[in-house]
């Protein structure tokens, strides 16, 4: 099973008017691996994530997803009900701003339980038990289960979003700057949490970040993007310790040493 990538993209191209956002991008992702996509603002990272997750249609190129039975599906040719089913069970999406995916007027437990209920869970006791279990896994106090997310801090919101996404045990998770906007100590805890959970669940992750440190900590492989092109790709340590492309060299050398 590990021979075939869970997600494969070939020749993705998309431009917004005259601005090329993606130029002939290829991506492969295997189960249990974290692929970090780094690059400066406007290099097409988030566009790539949206195209891979089926939210944005490329002008040319194909994205193939391989389901647990081994069948390959063209993400952009999939019927909408099937894509929606994938997005709410097998896939997950972690936004930079947790307010985009959380329901702010629904309790923490309801937020975690929503994907379970969307998938057909109809036993309140079970849903509640799973919500409690997941809150504990993301280090949120069990007695906050009935509190509204608006009473939570930024770091707690992000952890709640992760619990909400992982509760259905997805196989593939897209993360868009999951640590953006958080202070350094909260970031460190969150990164540790993501690394632990991802390793334990064996999910595949596409992680978009502009932070080289985050990529180094989490990513197994790395893809460096510049102006819509993937300029360098390889194992994280290899690319970051021995950058070949001039842009990667610039990127690595511009990181402040603490």
């Amino acid at each position: 099973m590990n021979d075939d990538p869970i997600l494969a993209a070939r020749g993705l191209t998309l431009s917004f008017g005259v601005i090329p956002a993606l130029l002939n991008v290829d991506v492969d992702l295997w189960l249990g691996e974290i692929l970090a996509i780094v690059g400066e603002s406007g290099s097409g990272k988030t566009t790539l994530l949206n195209v891979l997750s089926g939210q944005l249609r490329p002008q040319s190129g194909i994205v193939t997803y391989r389901d647990p039975e081994g069948a390959a599906h063209d993400v952009h040719a999939m019927p909408p009900p099937m894509l929606r089913t994938l997005q709410r069970s097998d896939w997950g999406f972690v936004h930079q701003d947790p307010r985009r995916s959380l329901r702010m007027n629904v309790s923490a437990g309801g937020n975690v339980g929503e994907r379970l209920m969307a998938r057909g869970a109809r036993h309140y006791g079970d849903i509640r038990a799973q919500a409690l279990d997941w809150l504990e896994q993301v280090e949120i106090d069990a007695d906050r289960i009935d509190d509204l997310p608006r009473t939570f801090s930024g770091g707690m919101l992000q952890r709640l979003q992760i619990a909400r996404t992982l509760v259905t045990h997805p196989r593939l998770v897209f993360m868009d700057e999951p640590t953006g906007g958080l202070d350094v100590s909260v970031q460190a805890r969150l990164l540790d949490l993501i690394r632990t959970l991802v390793a334990r669940l064996g999910v595949a992750v596409v992680l978009v970040t502009h932070d080289i440190a985050v990529a180094r900590l989490l990513g197994h492989r790395i893809a460096v993007m510049q102006r819509g092109r993937v300029v360098e790709t390889g194992l994280t340590d290899q690319v970051l310790d021995d950058p070949r492309h001039p842009y990667t060299q610039l990127l690595v050398s511009s990181v402040l040493q603490a």
């Binding site: 009900p81 309801g110 929503e114 209920m117 969307a118 309140y124």
Partner: peptide, 19 residues
């Protein structure tokens, strides 16, 4: 409605039972 995506309605019921 088109996708029969009704998890949200159950979230409302969940909230009622929880509160």
């Amino acid at each position: 409605h088109a996708l029969a995506d009704y998890g949200l309605m159950h979230v409302k019921l969940y909230e009622d039972v929880a509160r």
